[in-house]
Design a protein around this nucleic acid. Structure first.
Lengths: 186, 186
DNA sequence: ATCAAGGTGTTGCATAAGCGACAAAATCCA
DNA sequence: TGGATTTTGTCGCTTATGCAACACCTTGAT
């Protein structure tokens, strides 16, 4: 219910760091962004960065997951289980996300982003697969999440090449009947 | 030369507070702006406000002087003494300042702003009058500063009524020959 | 008149943020 | 290759900020 209320200074500083990172991402490639840069842009001390993040990859991961989660509009998947409607909305979210990011970022960045998006998808799918099976810690569910995450992410890459011919919704729904042939029950 | 380098947290927080105040000024009248409002908007604790400012009038004063100083482009008056060119640039600066502020602020605000602008002008004029007379703490110079500040401020009020007929530069320069009839020396 | 609600300043204590310094690693460049 | 420069993590100590609580004051409704 009420988690212990994170200190407002923490919220503010984390936001400053994340915003600065996204701002810098528009000017430099990822490999050229240093923690010193970020601290200067965010007007915080470099040591403070390490108070909030392990390193720059940790920051990247958290920025991606946070922005992605916002795009996914939590209510859509937190309360439901995995079905056609949810997959469609997730697919639309990540294609939107990638497009908004590719406007904002330089080249050399995409691979890192791609890996992180897929990892986030894997986490999300696993949680949703777990919904109807709350008790069992099935290895099979983990593997399924891996496959789905790779599959959906790959689909988004493929869709980009045809983005002027077809909408994300149409695109993913061409495949859904083949992916989820069974009833929505178990 | 190098003053003791104010803590970056102080700079950041003061900026947050001042920006929030200007932001709120665009939405509410001055009398309706509370310190609680400002703290919320600035995402700082209310107690922190009192760490930086006496009260809301202290804040107003410092916002005005700071913005006004920026408009005056310090180099213009810090190194020179009072002459026609300087008075003209000051006059232009405060008319610009007032116009940009009247766009931003609601009614009921102007009197407070006016009083503060005049007080700032008085300080500035006194400093400049002191330049050629660095030693003497003349009461006469203080009174002169009072008169000039009221005069220049009143001129800016008067100019507003004719702002579509004449530029600030032209307006003030109509009066300058009568104000400063003597040579620019003592 | 009375009460409730909200804003104001202030305080003591807990904690995040700044600073300087440091060694280690990475990067640059001659 | 080597040496210089920059970046990275990390550390103790200081300082600014958050928080809860308080008394006091205004405002407005009953």
């Amino acid at each position: 219910m009420n988690q212990p209320k994170t200190d407002p200074r923490i919220q503010r500083t984390r936001k400053l760091i994340m915003d600065s990172f996204m701002e810098l991402s528009g000017k430099k490639e990822f490999k050229d962004i240093t923690i010193t840069d970020i601290a200067a842009e965010a007007m915080i001390n470099r040591a403070t960065f390490y108070y909030h993040f392990e390193d720059i990859y940790d920051l990247l991961e958290k920025v991606l997951s946070e922005v992605l989660l916002v795009n996914l509009d939590c209510s859509n998947y937190q309360h439901k289980e995995l079905n056609e409607e949810v997959i469609t909305s997730i697919f639309v979210a990540i294609t939107n996300f990638q497009q908004s990011l590719s406007n904002r970022c330089h080249r050399g960045y995409e691979d890192t982003i791609a890996r992180n998006i897929r990892e986030q998808l894997e986490i999300i799918f696993y949680k949703m697969l777990l919904k109807p099976h709350p008790t069992e810690e099935d290895e099979g569910l983990k593997i399924t999440a891996v496959i789905l995450s790779w599959g959906i992410y790959g689909a988004s890459v493929e869709w980009k090449r045809k983005s002027n011919e077809i909408t994300p919704e149409e695109f993913i729904q061409l495949a859904l009947p083949h992916l989820l042939p069974r009833d929505n029950g178990v």
